[in-house]
């Protein structure tokens, strides 16, 4: 990927990432996240990872982000809880993040990676499939287990179950969110 295009997507990714964490409204944050994810997808494609890049766009934006949106609507969280009085933690977070970036870049700049040339089928679905059903067969099977866990887990935790014998208190979803 030429440097110019990289710079464009990278800048956009960083700006939108900042948008995710700095905007008040969760819906706006989510929109910013979509932009970031798409930028990263583009960068991936630029790294000859076409299949994964497309998956990123489809799986993330198509499924995960929609899930977020659904929950935001379900909980009626258009407005964020008031953000105030956490200057201390924000400062510490800024310092910590700066230190993290500093340390990581200090590390990463100490190694110069040279790019190898790759075959034309690099990153193709066929190549990935060969690996997934070859060396990574077990990993692939485990991901199927993970998906089952997700299904069972969400049902277990999000569905409402009848009152237990050792009941605590009966909260209801219909109650108004506190202001």
């Amino acid at each position: 990927m030429p440097l110019g295009i990289f710079a464009f997507f990278a800048t956009l990714a960083v700006i939108s990432a900042l948008g995710v964490i700095l905007q008040r409204s969760p819906v706006h944050s989510l929109l910013a996240l979509i932009v970031t994810l798409l930028c990263v997808a583009a960068l991936m494609i630029g790294l000859d990872a076409l299949a994964v890049g497309l998956l990123q766009a489809i799986v993330y934006v198509g499924a995960i982000v929609v899930l977020f949106l659904f929950v935001i609507w379900l909980l009626n969280l258009e407005r964020d809880p008031e953000e105030s009085g956490r200057l201390g933690i924000k400062l510490l977070a800024a310092v910590g993040a700066a230190a993290l970036v500093g340390e990581l870049t200090a590390f990463l700049t100490r190694t110069h990676m040279s790019q190898q040339t790759v075959n034309s089928d690099y990153g193709s679905m066929a190549q990935l499939a060969g690996l997934i059903f070859g060396n990574y067969l077990i990993a692939f099977e485990v991901t199927s287990l993970l998906l089952l866990v997700a299904v069972v887990g969400v049902v277990a935790v999000a569905r409402r179950w009848p009152s237990p014998r050792l009941a605590n208190r009966p909260p209801t979803l219909s109650a108004k969110p506190q202001t």
Binding site: A139, V142, T143, L145, L146, V149, A150, V152, G153, A156, V157, R160, W161, S163, P164, A167, N168, R169, P170, P171
Partner: peptide, 19 residues
């Protein structure tokens, strides 16, 4: 992946007592 399988199951189980 094993770690995630065990952890995600555990997250849910920890939160399971809904009331």
């Amino acid at each position: 992946l094993g770690l995630e399988t065990m952890s995600i199951s555990a997250y849910v189980m920890a939160a399971m007592a809904q009331r």
